[in-house]
Design a protein around this nucleic acid. Structure first.
Length: 648
RNA sequence: GCUGACGUAGCUCAAUUGGCAGAGCACCUGAUUUGUAAUCAGGAGGUUGCGAGUUCGAUUCUCGCCGUCAGCUCCA
């Protein structure tokens, strides 16, 4: 058999012609022995493979060192194998599933009779250190299907995977010491590359992600090249725990849950102030170009049949028994779209008035799986700043631009930075391919016109249309999907929506679904964690706490409090029989932005000794009027907290 | 819904092998009148999530239910 020659183009433009099937390691070695030492893997035309894998294609050849972010995924995948190696040593009966690298680390799934305990995890981690020290090379072998079946005869999960592979596919196995895995790779050269890692948690996970299949035990872990990076990552995790909105929500007395209403929050007085400030901000932003309406919460199923939700979504809806029909044919609305469509269709619309934008803050109910509920981020009752835009097809680009500017400047107010994603038609959807073609191309064109970067998510769209999603990064770099712009050609058909055109004929409008905060509940959760509870003045449940030093100054303090409240400042008087230190401490603990202290000096001069949250003893003695002006101005301009205020 | 862990006073947590359920903070009362992150003393507060079972005896062991958490699935 004549060996084919392939050509590799190095980054400096030089080329290497080698026989197809040459292991990458040989090519790297030919470039330089030092490079071979530093090499983790290589990329051929961007496709990462390891040093043991034969080269089969020509293309741009890049050697990946630790410094290349792609090499980290290779390390982590090898980490998964090392984990499996350790688990198999201590629990030989464990069947192995999959062990990929993921965003922040890696995991491996095992099928075992008895689930792992935290003690098991410690033992596995210690064993992994040994496996790493034993420095087993990751040996790659390519096998036939029959050989593979023999090799994994005791691993039913691997056999299942093997059976799915096509006859012409390269089937490879990787062996590190005692452990063999069916695996495409790539891997680091040997187990000693894994040095800074940590097993994090264990949880159940369905085999192949299918809830009808058996539950496996998944071990989550992470690994880094450098100890500093691992420490930083672990620190980030503990920081996230410190900022957990569920913890802060309790500490700051913002909301709570009762077992009798799972997934539906009770908002305290303080939490309600926060909510109202946020909702007021959205209202203010939308007062010109949007029309706020209120619609019913409960609807007959015929509406959901018309919208298409009855078929696909019924399981997630709270159905209500209708006394007269004796059927559960009423439902709490899980979204506002159909009510807006209904409302639009109730009137004649001219092409001149488009786009019209309806917004509604009504509470929505979705019957989420009990196991999916989590704090304010996954609830059963929530409110969206939900908007539906009805417009002509020729207005799409302009509208998308308008909405994007709206959304992005909204996030800016909170110091949040958004990443954009463009999601196309999902496998399960309604509407013809023709409609989808038009929807996707017009939304994409509008998105391209804005010149912003975005990530393409194929198949991730809503069932009625493609969408642009906005992922917001919080202050410790976690991404949350909240805002969305969804283009919908289907609803106008289903609801027979029309406007009268210039030609006096009826035309079909297009619908855009838009949310900015996602849901207020989730957005508030993000804000709590983003600010670590130290909200900007305009959002703070309590903006000022007025503290008389002793009883003698309580009358003046009461007067000042009344004056502050009269101009709409959320101020509270704390004249309790406690030391000033005690009351200051409590105000700080509650992350109150301002403490206004009144003693003899201030009472006589008509001033306040103003203490700012997180700024310690530093005080600012100013007149009451000047203080009021300052708080009002900061509220009006929505000043963000000074950095460090949330570190307290 | 599934797998696992957990559920003790308003909150955060204790309570050997099954043997009278404790602390700090918060709360109430009194003293103290406080100058920028916890004044002192006293008091009250729990059918140990709910319901069964085993046992002379259950916070502790078993089962069921409810809820919470880590994930899976799903998703605003």
């Amino acid at each position: 058999m004549a060996t084919e020659t392939i050509q590799l183009v190095l980054p400096n433009g030089a080329t290497r012609d080698v026989p197809a099937g040459t292991p990458a390691r040989d090519v790297v070695a030919s470039i330089g022995p030092g490079l071979l030492k530093a090499a983790i893997a290589v990329a051929v035309d961007g496709e990462v493979q390891d040093l043991a894998t034969p080269l089969r294609k020509s293309g741009a050849f890049v050697v990946l060192k630790e410094s290349d972010p792609r090499s980290l995924a290779v390390l982590r995948h090898s980490g998964a194998h090392i984990l499996a190696t350790a688990v198999r040593r201590l629990r030989p009966e464990a069947n192995i599933g999959f062990g990929p690298s993921i965003d922040d680390g890696f995991y491996y799934d095992f099928e075992v009779d008895k689930p792992f305990t935290p003690e098991d995890l410690e033992a596995f981690e210690a064993e992994m250190v040994k496996v790493a020290a034993e420095k087993y090379p990751f040996e790659r072998a390519e096998v036939s299907k029959a050989e593979g079946e023999k090799l994994f005869v005791d691993d039913p999960l691997k056999l299942e995977r093997l059976a799915e592979l096509g006859d012409d596919e390269v089937i490879s196995t990787y062996t590190d010491g005692p452990f063999v895995d069916l695996c495409r790779g790539p891997h680091v050269p040997d187990t000693s590359y894994l040095r800074h890692f940590k097993l994090l948690s264990t949880a159940g996970a369905y085999w192949r992600g299918d809830e009808r299949r058996q539950m496996l035990q998944r071990i989550y872990a992470t690994a880094f090249w450098k100890k500093d990076d691992l420490d930083a990552h672990l620190h980030r995790l503990s920081e996230a725990r410190r900022r957990d909105h569920r913890v802060l929500g309790k500490q700051l007395d913002l909301f709570h849950f009762f077992p009798v209403a799972p997934g539906a929050a009770f908002w305290t007085e303080r939490g309600t102030h926060l909510w109202n400030a946020l909702e007021g901000f959205v209202r203010e932003r939308q007062q010109d170009a949007f029309s706020e309406i209120r619609t019913p919460l409960l609807y007959n199923k015929t509406l959901w049949e018309q919208s298409g939700h009855w078929g696909k979504y019924r399981e997630n809806m709270f159905l209500v028994l209708d006394k007269e029909s004796g059927e559960h044919d009423m439902s709490l609305k899980p979204m506002n779209c159909p009510s807006h469509h209904l409302y639009f269709a109730a009137h004649k619309h001219s092409y001149r008035e488009l786009p019209v934008r309806y917004v509604t803050f009504d509470p929505l109910h979705r019957n989420e799986l009990s196991g999916a509920l989590s704090g304010l981020t996954r609830v059963r009752q929530f409110s969206q700043d939900d908007c539906h835009v009805y417009l002509r097809e020729d207005q799409i680009a302009g509208e998308v631009q308008f909405l994007m500017d709206f959304i992005l400047s909204y996030y800016e107010t909170f110091g949040l930075v958004a990443k954009l994603k463009f999601a196309t038609r999902p496998p399960e959807r309604i509407g013809s391919d023709d409609l989808w073609d038009r929807a996707e191309s017009s939304l994409r064109a509008a998105l391209d016109q804005t010149g912003r970067e975005y990530e393409l998510k194929e198949g991730d769209g809503a069932f009625y249309g493609p969408k642009i999603d906005f992922d917001v990064l919080d202050s410790i770099g976690r991404a949350w999907q909240i805002g969305t712009i969804q283009l919908d050609y289907n609803a106008p058909e289903r609801f027979d929506l029309e406007y009268t055109g210039e030609d006096n004929a009826a035309h079909r409008p297009v619908v855009i679904h838009r949310a900015v905060s996602g849901s207020f509940e989730r957005f508030i959760a993000i804000l709590i964690e983003h600010f670590a509870g130290a909200f900007p003045v305009w959002l703070s449940p309590e903006q000022v706490r007025v503290l008389p030093i002793a009883d003698d100054f309580a009358p003046q303090a009461r007067e000042v409090t009344a004056k502050l409240r009269a101009v709409g400042i959320r101020a509270h008087l704390d004249s309790r029989n406690e030391t000033l230190n005690y009351r200051i401490r409590e105000a700080e603990t509650m992350k109150t932005p301002y403490m206004a202290v009144i003693g003899k000096r201030e009472a006589e001069a008509g001033t306040l000794a103003v203490r700012e949250r997180g700024q310690g003893k530093k005080q600012d003695v100013i007149s009451v009027d000047a203080f009021i002006a300052r708080v009002l101005e900061e509220t009006r301009t929505r000043v963000l907290p000074t950095p460090g205020a949330s570190d307290a």
